[in-house]
Design a protein around this nucleic acid. Structure first.
Lengths: 197, 197
DNA sequence: CCTCTAGGGAACGTTTCGTATCTTGCCTGG
DNA sequence: CCAGGCAAGATACGAAACGTTCCCTAGAGG
Protein backbone atom coordinates (compact mmCIF):
# COMPACT_ATOMS: atom_id res chain seq x y z
CA UNK A 1 0.00 0.00 0.00
CA UNK A 2 1.20 3.49 -0.77
CA UNK A 3 0.33 5.89 2.04
CA UNK A 4 0.27 8.95 -0.15
CA UNK A 5 0.09 12.11 1.86
CA UNK A 6 -1.67 15.07 0.29
CA UNK A 7 -0.88 18.67 1.12
CA UNK A 8 -2.24 22.20 0.81
CA UNK A 9 -4.47 22.85 -2.14
CA UNK A 10 -4.91 19.23 -3.12
CA UNK A 11 -5.86 18.21 0.40
CA UNK A 12 -8.28 21.07 0.92
CA UNK A 13 -9.99 20.37 -2.35
CA UNK A 14 -10.42 16.71 -1.47
CA UNK A 15 -11.90 17.70 1.89
CA UNK A 16 -14.32 20.12 0.25
CA UNK A 17 -15.48 17.38 -2.05
CA UNK A 18 -15.98 15.06 0.90
CA UNK A 19 -17.92 17.73 2.79
CA UNK A 20 -20.33 18.26 -0.08
CA UNK A 21 -20.79 14.53 -0.47
CA UNK A 22 -21.55 14.12 3.22
CA UNK A 23 -24.03 17.00 3.17
CA UNK A 24 -25.70 15.58 0.07
CA UNK A 25 -25.95 12.15 1.63
CA UNK A 26 -26.83 12.90 5.25
CA UNK A 27 -27.97 16.50 5.19
CA UNK A 28 -26.30 19.35 7.00
CA UNK A 29 -27.35 18.19 10.45
CA UNK A 30 -26.11 14.68 9.75
CA UNK A 31 -22.71 15.86 8.61
CA UNK A 32 -19.95 15.35 11.18
CA UNK A 33 -16.24 15.95 11.47
CA UNK A 34 -15.75 12.21 11.85
CA UNK A 35 -17.75 11.47 8.74
CA UNK A 36 -15.92 14.03 6.63
CA UNK A 37 -12.54 12.87 7.86
CA UNK A 38 -13.35 9.26 7.05
CA UNK A 39 -14.68 10.07 3.60
CA UNK A 40 -11.81 12.36 2.75
CA UNK A 41 -9.32 9.77 3.96
CA UNK A 42 -7.84 12.09 6.52
CA UNK A 43 -8.25 12.72 10.24
CA UNK A 44 -10.11 15.10 12.50
CA UNK A 45 -7.12 17.15 13.64
CA UNK A 46 -6.47 18.06 10.01
CA UNK A 47 -9.99 19.42 9.80
CA UNK A 48 -9.93 21.24 13.12
CA UNK A 49 -6.63 22.88 12.18
CA UNK A 50 -8.41 24.61 9.33
CA UNK A 51 -12.00 25.13 10.41
CA UNK A 52 -13.11 25.91 13.94
CA UNK A 53 -16.72 24.89 13.32
CA UNK A 54 -18.70 22.67 11.03
CA UNK A 55 -20.46 25.73 9.71
CA UNK A 56 -17.20 27.32 8.58
CA UNK A 57 -16.14 24.10 6.93
CA UNK A 58 -19.38 23.62 5.04
CA UNK A 59 -19.45 27.26 4.06
CA UNK A 60 -15.99 27.06 2.49
CA UNK A 61 -16.91 23.92 0.61
CA UNK A 62 -20.12 25.49 -0.64
CA UNK A 63 -18.40 28.67 -1.70
CA UNK A 64 -15.84 26.74 -3.72
CA UNK A 65 -18.59 24.80 -5.45
CA UNK A 66 -20.75 27.81 -6.16
CA UNK A 67 -20.60 29.05 -9.74
CA UNK A 68 -21.50 32.62 -8.75
CA UNK A 69 -23.97 34.89 -10.42
CA UNK A 70 -23.41 36.06 -13.95
CA UNK A 71 -25.03 38.51 -16.30
CA UNK A 72 -27.57 36.61 -18.41
CA UNK A 73 -27.71 37.09 -22.19
CA UNK A 74 -30.04 39.76 -23.50
CA UNK A 75 -33.52 38.33 -23.88
CA UNK A 76 -35.00 41.44 -25.45
CA UNK A 77 -37.07 42.61 -22.52
CA UNK A 78 -36.58 43.63 -18.91
CA UNK A 79 -39.04 40.98 -17.83
CA UNK A 80 -37.13 38.27 -19.66
CA UNK A 81 -33.76 39.45 -18.43
CA UNK A 82 -34.91 39.56 -14.83
CA UNK A 83 -36.43 36.10 -15.03
CA UNK A 84 -33.26 34.66 -16.51
CA UNK A 85 -31.17 36.23 -13.82
CA UNK A 86 -33.47 35.21 -10.99
CA UNK A 87 -33.49 31.64 -12.23
CA UNK A 88 -29.70 31.44 -11.93
CA UNK A 89 -29.93 32.95 -8.46
CA UNK A 90 -32.54 30.38 -7.53
CA UNK A 91 -30.53 27.45 -8.81
CA UNK A 92 -27.48 28.73 -6.98
CA UNK A 93 -29.35 28.76 -3.71
CA UNK A 94 -30.98 25.42 -4.33
CA UNK A 95 -27.67 23.88 -5.18
CA UNK A 96 -26.36 24.90 -1.77
CA UNK A 97 -29.50 23.47 -0.22
CA UNK A 98 -32.19 25.08 1.86
CA UNK A 99 -31.40 23.27 5.10
CA UNK A 100 -27.73 24.09 4.67
CA UNK A 101 -28.35 27.76 4.03
CA UNK A 102 -30.69 28.06 6.99
CA UNK A 103 -28.24 26.27 9.26
CA UNK A 104 -25.35 28.42 8.13
CA UNK A 105 -27.39 31.56 8.68
CA UNK A 106 -28.27 30.34 12.15
CA UNK A 107 -24.82 29.24 13.20
CA UNK A 108 -22.42 31.68 11.64
CA UNK A 109 -21.67 34.79 13.62
CA UNK A 110 -21.53 38.16 11.95
CA UNK A 111 -17.84 37.96 11.09
CA UNK A 112 -17.89 34.57 9.41
CA UNK A 113 -21.25 35.45 7.94
CA UNK A 114 -19.61 37.94 5.62
CA UNK A 115 -18.57 35.17 3.29
CA UNK A 116 -22.01 33.70 3.40
CA UNK A 117 -23.33 36.96 2.07
CA UNK A 118 -21.25 36.34 -1.01
CA UNK A 119 -23.08 33.10 -1.54
CA UNK A 120 -26.55 34.40 -0.78
CA UNK A 121 -26.45 38.01 -1.90
CA UNK A 122 -23.53 37.81 -4.29
CA UNK A 123 -23.51 41.43 -5.33
CA UNK A 124 -26.94 40.98 -6.82
CA UNK A 125 -27.38 44.67 -7.45
CA UNK A 126 -24.22 44.71 -9.55
CA UNK A 127 -25.87 42.33 -11.97
CA UNK A 128 -29.31 43.85 -11.95
CA UNK A 129 -27.99 47.32 -12.74
CA UNK A 130 -26.77 46.30 -16.21
CA UNK A 131 -30.14 44.69 -16.86
CA UNK A 132 -31.79 47.99 -16.04
CA UNK A 133 -29.37 49.79 -18.33
CA UNK A 134 -30.39 47.48 -21.14
CA UNK A 135 -34.01 48.25 -20.39
CA UNK A 136 -33.34 51.97 -20.46
CA UNK A 137 -31.66 51.59 -23.83
CA UNK A 138 -34.82 49.90 -25.05
CA UNK A 139 -36.95 52.69 -23.66
CA UNK A 140 -38.63 50.47 -21.09
CA UNK A 141 -37.49 52.68 -18.24
CA UNK A 142 -37.13 56.37 -17.57
CA UNK A 143 -33.91 58.00 -16.53
CA UNK A 144 -34.77 58.80 -12.93
CA UNK A 145 -32.53 56.93 -10.53
CA UNK A 146 -34.08 54.01 -8.74
CA UNK A 147 -33.79 53.47 -5.00
CA UNK A 148 -31.51 50.56 -3.99
CA UNK A 149 -34.33 48.62 -2.38
CA UNK A 150 -36.41 48.81 -5.52
CA UNK A 151 -33.53 47.45 -7.54
CA UNK A 152 -32.92 44.45 -5.32
CA UNK A 153 -36.61 43.86 -4.65
CA UNK A 154 -37.04 40.90 -6.97
CA UNK A 155 -33.91 39.17 -5.73
CA UNK A 156 -34.96 39.66 -2.13
CA UNK A 157 -38.33 38.11 -2.87
CA UNK A 158 -36.73 35.16 -4.60
CA UNK A 159 -34.43 34.67 -1.64
CA UNK A 160 -37.42 34.83 0.67
CA UNK A 161 -39.29 32.18 -1.27
CA UNK A 162 -36.40 29.79 -1.69
CA UNK A 163 -34.87 30.04 1.76
CA UNK A 164 -37.82 30.73 4.05
CA UNK A 165 -40.83 29.37 2.22
CA UNK A 166 -38.84 26.56 0.70
CA UNK A 167 -40.36 26.59 -2.75
CA UNK A 168 -40.29 28.78 -5.80
CA UNK A 169 -42.24 27.69 -8.85
CA UNK A 170 -41.87 29.10 -12.29
CA UNK A 171 -45.29 30.60 -11.89
CA UNK A 172 -44.39 32.42 -8.72
CA UNK A 173 -41.26 33.77 -10.30
CA UNK A 174 -43.32 35.12 -13.18
CA UNK A 175 -45.62 36.88 -10.75
CA UNK A 176 -42.73 38.39 -8.84
CA UNK A 177 -41.32 39.82 -12.02
CA UNK A 178 -44.41 40.77 -13.98
CA UNK A 179 -46.79 41.81 -11.23
CA UNK A 180 -44.37 43.31 -8.76
CA UNK A 181 -40.86 44.15 -9.89
CA UNK A 182 -41.45 45.36 -13.43
CA UNK A 183 -44.58 47.40 -12.63
CA UNK A 184 -42.78 49.10 -9.77
CA UNK A 185 -39.64 49.79 -11.79
CA UNK A 186 -41.57 51.21 -14.72
CA UNK A 187 -44.31 53.04 -12.87
CA UNK A 188 -41.68 54.73 -10.78
CA UNK A 189 -39.96 56.10 -13.81
CA UNK A 190 -43.14 57.06 -15.62
CA UNK A 191 -44.45 59.08 -12.73
CA UNK A 192 -42.25 61.49 -10.83
CA UNK A 193 -41.00 59.11 -8.11
CA UNK A 194 -43.16 60.81 -5.49
CA UNK A 195 -41.20 59.57 -2.47
CA UNK A 196 -42.63 59.42 1.01
CA UNK A 197 -42.95 63.12 1.82
CA UNK B 1 -39.57 18.32 51.71
CA UNK B 2 -42.72 18.04 49.67
CA UNK B 3 -42.05 16.20 46.42
CA UNK B 4 -44.96 17.76 44.60
CA UNK B 5 -45.67 16.11 41.31
CA UNK B 6 -47.15 18.29 38.57
CA UNK B 7 -49.39 16.98 35.82
CA UNK B 8 -50.84 17.88 32.44
CA UNK B 9 -51.38 21.54 31.77
CA UNK B 10 -49.42 22.79 34.75
CA UNK B 11 -46.43 20.62 33.91
CA UNK B 12 -46.39 21.52 30.24
CA UNK B 13 -46.59 25.18 31.03
CA UNK B 14 -43.67 24.96 33.42
CA UNK B 15 -41.65 23.13 30.79
CA UNK B 16 -42.44 25.76 28.18
CA UNK B 17 -41.25 28.42 30.54
CA UNK B 18 -38.04 26.52 31.15
CA UNK B 19 -37.50 26.05 27.43
CA UNK B 20 -37.79 29.76 26.74
CA UNK B 21 -35.45 30.56 29.62
CA UNK B 22 -32.88 28.10 28.32
CA UNK B 23 -33.11 29.47 24.81
CA UNK B 24 -32.79 33.01 26.11
CA UNK B 25 -29.79 32.13 28.20
CA UNK B 26 -27.85 29.75 25.98
CA UNK B 27 -29.33 30.29 22.56
CA UNK B 28 -31.16 27.68 20.53
CA UNK B 29 -28.06 25.63 19.79
CA UNK B 30 -27.07 25.63 23.44
CA UNK B 31 -30.45 24.42 24.59
CA UNK B 32 -30.55 20.73 25.53
CA UNK B 33 -33.05 18.25 26.84
CA UNK B 34 -30.93 17.85 29.95
CA UNK B 35 -30.81 21.56 30.56
CA UNK B 36 -34.55 22.00 30.11
CA UNK B 37 -35.31 19.04 32.35
CA UNK B 38 -33.06 20.38 35.09
CA UNK B 39 -34.48 23.88 34.93
CA UNK B 40 -38.06 22.70 34.81
CA UNK B 41 -37.42 20.39 37.74
CA UNK B 42 -38.41 17.31 35.79
CA UNK B 43 -36.60 14.59 33.86
CA UNK B 44 -35.75 13.81 30.27
CA UNK B 45 -38.24 10.97 29.79
CA UNK B 46 -41.02 13.40 30.60
CA UNK B 47 -39.82 15.62 27.79
CA UNK B 48 -39.27 12.83 25.30
CA UNK B 49 -42.73 11.49 25.97
CA UNK B 50 -44.17 14.73 24.64
CA UNK B 51 -41.74 16.02 22.02
CA UNK B 52 -39.73 13.83 19.68
CA UNK B 53 -37.20 16.56 18.87
CA UNK B 54 -35.79 19.71 20.39
CA UNK B 55 -37.21 21.66 17.48
CA UNK B 56 -40.76 20.52 18.23
CA UNK B 57 -40.33 21.36 21.88
CA UNK B 58 -38.99 24.84 21.26
CA UNK B 59 -41.64 25.46 18.64
CA UNK B 60 -44.44 24.63 21.05
CA UNK B 61 -42.95 26.84 23.72
CA UNK B 62 -42.55 29.70 21.26
CA UNK B 63 -46.05 29.34 19.94
CA UNK B 64 -47.52 29.50 23.43
CA UNK B 65 -45.53 32.63 24.18
CA UNK B 66 -46.35 34.35 20.91
CA UNK B 67 -49.02 37.04 21.18
CA UNK B 68 -50.09 36.61 17.57
CA UNK B 69 -50.77 39.32 15.06
CA UNK B 70 -53.59 41.74 15.58
CA UNK B 71 -55.25 44.47 13.60
CA UNK B 72 -53.60 47.76 14.52
CA UNK B 73 -55.70 50.82 15.32
CA UNK B 74 -56.55 53.13 12.45
CA UNK B 75 -53.73 55.62 11.94
CA UNK B 76 -55.48 57.60 9.25
CA UNK B 77 -53.41 56.43 6.30
CA UNK B 78 -52.53 53.22 4.53
CA UNK B 79 -48.85 53.97 5.05
CA UNK B 80 -49.33 54.42 8.78
CA UNK B 81 -51.51 51.37 9.13
CA UNK B 82 -49.04 49.19 7.28
CA UNK B 83 -46.11 50.42 9.32
CA UNK B 84 -47.96 49.78 12.57
CA UNK B 85 -48.83 46.29 11.47
CA UNK B 86 -45.36 45.47 10.21
CA UNK B 87 -43.82 46.65 13.44
CA UNK B 88 -45.90 44.16 15.41
CA UNK B 89 -44.92 41.45 12.95
CA UNK B 90 -41.28 42.41 13.37
CA UNK B 91 -41.40 42.38 17.15
CA UNK B 92 -43.15 39.03 17.07
CA UNK B 93 -40.34 37.53 15.02
CA UNK B 94 -37.63 39.19 17.05
CA UNK B 95 -39.19 37.95 20.25
CA UNK B 96 -38.89 34.39 18.96
CA UNK B 97 -35.29 35.11 17.99
CA UNK B 98 -33.55 34.99 14.66
CA UNK B 99 -31.32 32.03 15.45
CA UNK B 100 -34.29 30.12 16.78
CA UNK B 101 -36.45 30.82 13.76
CA UNK B 102 -33.67 29.85 11.36
CA UNK B 103 -32.96 26.67 13.28
CA UNK B 104 -36.61 25.71 13.39
CA UNK B 105 -36.97 26.35 9.68
CA UNK B 106 -33.92 24.18 9.07
CA UNK B 107 -34.86 21.31 11.35
CA UNK B 108 -38.61 20.98 11.11
CA UNK B 109 -39.92 18.80 8.39
CA UNK B 110 -42.88 19.84 6.29
CA UNK B 111 -45.48 18.34 8.60
CA UNK B 112 -44.26 19.90 11.83
CA UNK B 113 -43.45 23.04 9.90
CA UNK B 114 -47.12 23.77 9.48
CA UNK B 115 -47.31 25.10 13.02
CA UNK B 116 -44.25 27.18 12.42
CA UNK B 117 -46.05 28.87 9.60
CA UNK B 118 -48.53 30.10 12.16
CA UNK B 119 -45.74 31.81 13.99
CA UNK B 120 -44.00 33.24 10.97
CA UNK B 121 -46.80 33.87 8.51
CA UNK B 122 -49.68 34.03 10.94
CA UNK B 123 -52.40 34.67 8.44
CA UNK B 124 -50.76 37.93 7.53
CA UNK B 125 -53.03 38.51 4.58
CA UNK B 126 -56.06 38.28 6.83
CA UNK B 127 -54.85 41.32 8.69
CA UNK B 128 -53.61 43.30 5.73
CA UNK B 129 -56.93 42.96 3.91
CA UNK B 130 -58.82 45.03 6.49
CA UNK B 131 -56.11 47.66 6.28
CA UNK B 132 -56.66 47.84 2.55
CA UNK B 133 -60.39 48.11 3.10
CA UNK B 134 -59.81 51.08 5.33
CA UNK B 135 -57.64 52.61 2.65
CA UNK B 136 -60.36 52.09 0.04
CA UNK B 137 -62.85 53.76 2.32
CA UNK B 138 -60.51 56.72 2.48
CA UNK B 139 -60.16 56.76 -1.29
CA UNK B 140 -56.49 55.83 -1.22
CA UNK B 141 -57.09 52.76 -3.34
CA UNK B 142 -59.21 51.84 -6.32
CA UNK B 143 -61.66 48.98 -6.33
CA UNK B 144 -59.78 46.61 -8.58
CA UNK B 145 -58.82 43.42 -6.78
CA UNK B 146 -55.18 43.09 -5.82
CA UNK B 147 -53.16 39.96 -6.49
CA UNK B 148 -52.28 37.93 -3.37
CA UNK B 149 -48.55 38.45 -3.75
CA UNK B 150 -48.99 42.19 -3.94
CA UNK B 151 -50.97 42.14 -0.71
CA UNK B 152 -48.40 40.14 1.25
CA UNK B 153 -45.43 41.86 -0.38
CA UNK B 154 -44.55 44.13 2.53
CA UNK B 155 -44.81 41.34 5.08
CA UNK B 156 -42.64 39.09 2.96
CA UNK B 157 -40.00 41.77 2.75
CA UNK B 158 -40.09 42.34 6.48
CA UNK B 159 -39.71 38.62 7.05
CA UNK B 160 -36.79 38.56 4.66
CA UNK B 161 -35.02 41.38 6.45
CA UNK B 162 -35.59 40.10 9.97
CA UNK B 163 -34.94 36.42 9.39
CA UNK B 164 -32.37 36.33 6.61
CA UNK B 165 -30.62 39.68 6.75
CA UNK B 166 -30.92 39.84 10.51
CA UNK B 167 -31.72 43.50 10.85
CA UNK B 168 -34.63 45.79 10.14
CA UNK B 169 -34.31 49.43 11.03
CA UNK B 170 -37.16 51.88 11.25
CA UNK B 171 -35.74 53.55 8.19
CA UNK B 172 -35.78 50.39 6.15
CA UNK B 173 -39.33 49.68 7.18
CA UNK B 174 -40.33 53.14 6.01
CA UNK B 175 -38.73 52.50 2.65
CA UNK B 176 -40.45 49.16 2.26
CA UNK B 177 -43.81 50.77 2.90
CA UNK B 178 -43.45 54.15 1.23
CA UNK B 179 -41.23 53.34 -1.71
CA UNK B 180 -42.38 49.84 -2.50
CA UNK B 181 -45.63 48.57 -1.02
CA UNK B 182 -47.79 51.69 -1.12
CA UNK B 183 -46.68 52.84 -4.58
CA UNK B 184 -47.37 49.39 -5.97
CA UNK B 185 -50.74 49.07 -4.27
CA UNK B 186 -51.90 52.49 -5.40
CA UNK B 187 -50.38 52.58 -8.88
CA UNK B 188 -51.97 49.24 -9.56
CA UNK B 189 -55.39 50.54 -8.78
CA UNK B 190 -54.93 53.85 -10.57
CA UNK B 191 -53.87 52.21 -13.78
CA UNK B 192 -55.74 49.26 -15.21
CA UNK B 193 -53.66 46.50 -13.59
CA UNK B 194 -51.94 45.73 -16.88
CA UNK B 195 -50.75 42.23 -16.02
CA UNK B 196 -48.03 40.47 -17.92
CA UNK B 197 -49.67 39.95 -21.28
C1' DC C 1 21.18 14.31 3.69
C1' DC C 2 18.99 16.78 7.50
C1' DT C 3 15.41 19.30 9.31
C1' DC C 4 11.14 20.98 10.04
C1' DT C 5 6.46 21.27 8.87
C1' DA C 6 2.16 19.28 8.59
C1' DG C 7 -0.60 14.93 7.49
C1' DG C 8 -2.52 11.24 9.63
C1' DG C 9 -3.54 7.66 13.28
C1' DA C 10 -5.21 6.69 17.72
C1' DA C 11 -6.98 7.47 21.93
C1' DC C 12 -8.84 10.36 25.44
C1' DG C 13 -12.55 12.68 28.56
C1' DT C 14 -16.76 15.10 28.00
C1' DT C 15 -21.35 16.15 26.57
C1' DT C 16 -25.62 15.06 24.64
C1' DC C 17 -28.56 11.96 22.87
C1' DG C 18 -32.34 8.68 23.15
C1' DT C 19 -33.99 4.82 25.79
C1' DA C 20 -34.90 1.49 29.50
C1' DT C 21 -35.93 0.56 34.20
C1' DC C 22 -37.83 1.48 38.47
C1' DT C 23 -40.16 3.77 42.22
C1' DT C 24 -43.86 6.53 43.76
C1' DG C 25 -47.17 10.40 43.92
C1' DC C 26 -51.72 11.27 42.52
C1' DC C 27 -56.08 10.72 40.15
C1' DT C 28 -60.05 7.72 39.44
C1' DG C 29 -63.53 4.08 39.73
C1' DG C 30 -65.65 1.02 42.45
C1' DC D 1 -62.31 5.01 51.26
C1' DC D 2 -59.55 1.96 49.24
C1' DA D 3 -57.44 -0.30 45.13
C1' DG D 4 -55.75 0.10 40.77
C1' DG D 5 -53.26 2.22 37.17
C1' DC D 6 -51.21 5.92 34.94
C1' DA D 7 -47.77 9.00 34.42
C1' DA D 8 -44.05 11.88 36.91
C1' DG D 9 -39.59 11.80 38.02
C1' DA D 10 -35.03 9.65 39.21
C1' DT D 11 -31.24 7.00 37.59
C1' DA D 12 -28.39 4.80 34.59
C1' DC D 13 -27.11 3.06 30.14
C1' DG D 14 -24.71 2.66 25.48
C1' DA D 15 -23.93 5.11 21.38
C1' DA D 16 -22.33 8.95 19.04
C1' DA D 17 -20.02 13.21 18.30
C1' DC D 18 -17.28 16.62 20.11
C1' DG D 19 -12.80 18.89 20.68
C1' DT D 20 -8.22 17.95 22.08
C1' DT D 21 -3.71 15.69 22.92
C1' DC D 22 0.07 12.81 21.80
C1' DC D 23 2.82 10.68 18.71
C1' DC D 24 4.71 9.02 14.40
C1' DT D 25 6.19 9.82 9.86
C1' DA D 26 5.76 11.36 4.77
C1' DG D 27 7.61 14.64 2.13
C1' DA D 28 9.05 19.38 0.92
C1' DG D 29 12.99 22.52 1.24
C1' DG D 30 17.53 23.90 2.38
Amino acid sequence: MTPRRRRGEELVSAIHKAVLAEVAEHGYAGTTYDGVAARAGTSKPVLYRRWPTKAAMVLDASLEASPGLTLPPDTGSLSGDLKAFLRTAQSMMERAGRQTLLSLLAELDRSAGESLRDLLFARGADIIEPLLDRARARGELGDSPLPPRVITLALNLVRHEVVIVGALTEETLDIIVDEIAVPLLTSRSLRGTPGSA
